[in-house]
Amino acid sequence: MADALLFATLNGLVTGLLLFMLASGVTLIFSMMGVLNFAHASFYMLGAYFAFSLSQHLGFWPALLLAPLLTGVLGALVERYGLRQVHRHGAVAELVFTFGLAFLIEELVQLFWGRATQDFRVPALLDFPLFTLFGQDFPAWRAFMLLLSLGIFAGLYAGLTRTRYGLILRAAITHPQTVANLGHNVPRIFMLAFGVGTALAGLAGVIAGPVLGTWPGMAASLGSLVFVIVVIGGLGSLTGAFVAALLIGLLQSWAIASSVGMADVLALLGVSFPPDHPLRDLWRLTLPQVAPLLPYVLLVLMLLLRPAGLAGNRED
């Protein structure tokens, strides 16, 4: 049991940190523009696909650098020529625009790369088991993912709190008028920040593509989950998003490792149902069976009990 728990924790951390790379971008963009970017996970997908295509010509490592850049540029263009236009029509239109964009990007990816899963591999340099514990390998690539995402978190945090650009950005979020009066081009700051956010998503795509699969559904499967994290963490809070991402990563992982089910709960309560009960499937549910759905349950509970999220404040 201990070995399963250890692996579950390690995997939960990897997933959680990956989710955070996406959630950080969504949070950043929400703080700036007040819009939840539904298409954020689509940039994650684009990052993976760009890296796949680039790595076929240039090798993996240049692709690791170029694909996020390309994604970021694309993101900045979307902000400049799409979102800024829609901004005038109100918050609902913005949200719906990003929703449509996510749909569109998925269709375009299918058009250019086809519908099948792409053969995007872990580079040979890191394609070995780092250690073996209780008969299960822990691939070196996962350790790399872990380190890289931790590095990104540290870099982002330092960048936002310790550098001049971070200062201007944070000021532009809270006091756009003042920052503009001081001579900064606020729309351009926002565009750049949007680019950085999408580039981060692209980077997440590059490192996740080889292990989680590079296929047209990869954005949809992650998109709503990232939303859930941002909302649970408290809209606009980077620390909240970090905590929520880890929480959800670990929660899912542990839930799968467990083997508790409704049957145990019913036995504890001393209740039993006939096997042909109309809701029989409900009484047979187990925790691992619904583990991937737990974040949504958590979301609904959170919004009911503490609508501002883990780290949100009541101002907005």
Partner: peptide, 8 residues
């Protein structure tokens, strides 16, 4: 967000 969660 709740509608999204409940829908899923």
């Amino acid at each position: 967000m709740i509608s999204l969660g409940l829908g899923e």
